[in-house]
């Protein structure tokens, strides 16, 4: 098998800027147009059958990245290569025509919002089959829906198929959302914080379900989360985002148990540990202040105003990406040998 066959998704220097809406008067007075730099030049690649984690705090640009990858938003700049083909400049129509809708799916964070309250589970899960004209046969549609409901453990399927979302618990709703994403046998699924709204006790079973589809259907995932402890259990490799940029990349085990970038260290040391004795001893690395606005991010390294190790150069120049170990890279001046 040739090497590049291994990579399914390649993101190369991707940007997504949202124009800031301002009143007419403001535009006149201030002149230049402002942008929310939600994603500001990120690169990573996802291998087939991999679970690639994108982690970071609120507002770092994770969801925006996910939406660009599933074609909900158009990139401002940069390249996305999917299975060898550049898909970054495809129009929505092209996207559908090339069958990408069937191959690329997304699971959203909030299962209370992502299901239409007026549709039954059957209609919700059947929708991808109908809109992609997989089949017109009502029987076949119903059979496929019931089968996937069994797979996501909503049993008895014939019972759940006719319920409305408000008759389901949060965990069951998320199973419906997963069934909808999986009913077309996609190759690549963006899972945007699929368990963050759920109770701790049922999170593990939802994660098991995602694993099941990787094992049995060869699904590749981009798993978006702010929870590094969970990331460690599901992910293979990880990228840590801060203010639209990736600050550290590597295998999940390396990055989470041995973080190198000051931001990653702060993040990891803030995670509560389910171990009281360890918790009492542990030292935290604290960042000063609050996350700055993505409209006017700090010059140089974006973390420098908050970083306990900031040096002169950090406020002047953007740090390069340094490989500190095969497959583990950090964008930080601390690791640049001079």
């Amino acid at each position: 098998m040739p090497r590049q066959d291994q990579v399914l998704v390649e993101v190369d220097n991707l940007y997504k800027w949202f124009p800031v809406r301002r009143s007419f008067l403001e535009t006149l007075l201030k002149g230049e147009r402002l942008f929310v730099k939600a994603v500001d030049g990120i690169s990573f690649s996802i291998k087939k059958r991999e679970i690639y984690v994108l982690a970071g705090e609120s507002g770092s640009g994770k969801t925006t990245t996910g939406k660009v990858l599933v074609g909900l938003e158009k990139p401002t700049r940069g390249r996305i290569v999917y299975d060898g083909a550049d898909i970054s400049s495809l129009s929505l129509k092209e996207w559908r025509r090339q069958g990408l809708r069937k191959k690329i799916q997304m699971i959203f964070q909030d299962p209370y919002e992502s299901l239409n309250p007026r549709q039954r589970v059957l209609d919700i899960v059947a929708e991808p089959l109908i809109v992609n004209r997989v089949t017109r046969d009502k029987r076949e549609i119903e059979e496929r829906v019931l089968k996937i409901l069994e797979e996501v453990k909503l049993t008895p399927a014939t019972e759940f198929a006719y319920r409305y979302p408000h008759q389901l618990s949060g965990g069951q709703r998320q199973r419906v959302a997963i069934a909808r994403a999986m009913v077309l046998d996609p190759e690549f699924v963006v899972a945007d914080e699929p368990v963050s709204m759920l109770d701790a006790s049922i999170r593990a079973s939802i994660l098991d379900l995602l694993m099941y589809f990787r094992e049995h259907k060869n699904v590749t995932y981009l798993y978006i989360t702010h929870d590094l402890a969970t990331a460690r259990y599901v992910g293979d490799r990880i990228a840590i985002m801060y203010l639209g940029k990736i600050v550290e990349k590597g295998s999940v085990e390396d990055v989470v148990t041995n973080p190198q970038h000051p931001y990653t260290q702060a993040l990891v040391s803030s995670i509560p540990v389910p171990d009281p004795k360890y918790a009492r001893e542990k030292k935290r690395i604290e960042l000063k202040g609050e996350i700055p606005s993505p409209i006017n991010p700090p010059k140089g390294c974006r973390l420098h105003p908050r970083c306990p190790f900031a040096m002169d150069i950090c406020s002047r120049e953007e740090p390069p990406e340094v490989e500190i170990k095969p497959g583990h890279t950090v964008s930080c001046w601390l690791y640049v040998k001079r």
Binding site: L72, I104, E113, N116, P117, R118, E127, V131, R180
Partner: peptide
Amino acid sequence: RLFVQASRVSGATDLYIIVHHILPN
């Protein structure tokens, strides 16, 4: 709303979304 975006990811056209998601609501 998220369910409209979800429908778009599923591959629904604008017309389909208007008829099946906007109209009933």
